[in-house]
């Protein structure tokens, strides 16, 4: 591997001439501007136009002060963060083990993690509905071994949503963690051990900080993804678990109210943007990007 990749510095130019590179970049920027940035601007514009067609912050204000929408936003934020941390706790030990594997075991592990990506998340969610129901496989098992409180209510409530979303997002967290765990230099661990550190100390002072970029990137990715989810909460949640993306879909597909949808989108963008800014500040942008 070249020195370039190990230190994260960009490799020297030589792929193409300056002119060519410029053209390539220009094409990309043009593409993004026309097909992505411009519609986002349209959304922004739509969200600040009131009923008469003049520019005003009124519609956004109305949305933000609507009690129903406020609680839905809160619900979405709380659920997203909960799901992200649940993913982290579940994935961390597994990823550490996975990062150590080599050869066919590593390949097998990677395949199994990637496999869920290949099925529609929609289908995976409704399989859960069958498995987690009152008479579903899990509850039948719990009842048969006499677990107290069984059958548990695992569907149509917050628990169901968290289980469903954790399941769908776990692979993202695993991949992010494994990526940074693989880069941990084993010699650093050896050095710490030879200096007399115990296992717990090594974990907290060496391993964990070294994997922090992966943890951070994983948390950020899963939180943001969870924030925009609508399929899982729609199928596995109750009416109190409605998340903001469901509202946006409602507005577009059922009510044809694009300005409301736009307003909600802008609010979402702002929240997500702030979250990113905070994360980037706290962890450093470069580490965030590199860890991905």
């Amino acid at each position: 591997m070249s020195v370039a990749s190990r230190t994260g510095q960009p490799a020297a130019s030589g792929f193409m001439s300056q002119g060519r590179q410029f053209v390539g970049l220009a094409i990309l920027l043009a593409f993004l501007s026309v097909f992505f940035l411009y519609p986002l601007v349209e959304i922004l514009v739509l969200s600040v136009i009131d009923a008469e067609g003049s520019l005003s912050l009124q519609p956004l204000y109305k949305l933000l002060t609507n009690a129903g929408i406020q609680s839905i936003l809160l619900q979405t934020a709380v659920t997203s963060v909960t799901v992200a941390f649940t993913c982290l706790v579940i994935a961390y030990p597994a990823a550490a083990c996975l990062a150590r594997l080599e050869g066919w075991k590593a390949t097998l592990g990677n395949i199994i993690i990637l496999f869920p990506f290949l099925t529609s998340s929609l289908v995976r969610t409704f399989v859960f509905i069958v498995l987690l129901g009152r008479n579903g496989m899990l509850n039948q098992f719990l009842v048969s071994i006499g677990v107290p409180g069984a059958p548990w209510k695992l569907l149509f409530n917050q628990t169901g949503v968290i289980i469903g979303m954790t399941y769908v997002l776990l692979p993202y967290m695993l991949l992010s963690l494994v990526g940074s765990m693989k880069r941990v230099d084993a010699r650093l661990i050896d050095a710490a051990r030879s200096l007399g550190a115990g296992r717990v100390t090594i974990f907290f002072t060496v391993y964990l900080p070294l994997t922090a970029p992966g943890v951070a990137a994983g948390l950020v990715i899963t939180t943001i993804l969870a924030f925009g989810y609508f399929v899982t909460p729609a199928l596995m949640g109750g009416p109190a678990q409605v998340m903001i993306a469901q509202l946006v879909e409602q507005q577009v597909v059922i009510m044809f109210n694009l300005s409301q949808a736009a307003g909600l989108s802008i609010i979402m963008l702002v929240i997500v943007g702030v979250a990113y800014a905070v994360a980037a500040r706290w962890l450093g942008i470069a580490r965030l990007m590199r860890a991905g």
């Binding site: 129903g68 619900q75 009416p239 009510m255």
Partner: peptide, 11 residues
């Protein structure tokens, strides 16, 4: 109905 429901549901 949609708006009323959203408010009711969140509580």
């Amino acid at each position: 109905v949609t708006n009323a429901w959203n408010e009711w549901a969140a509580n």
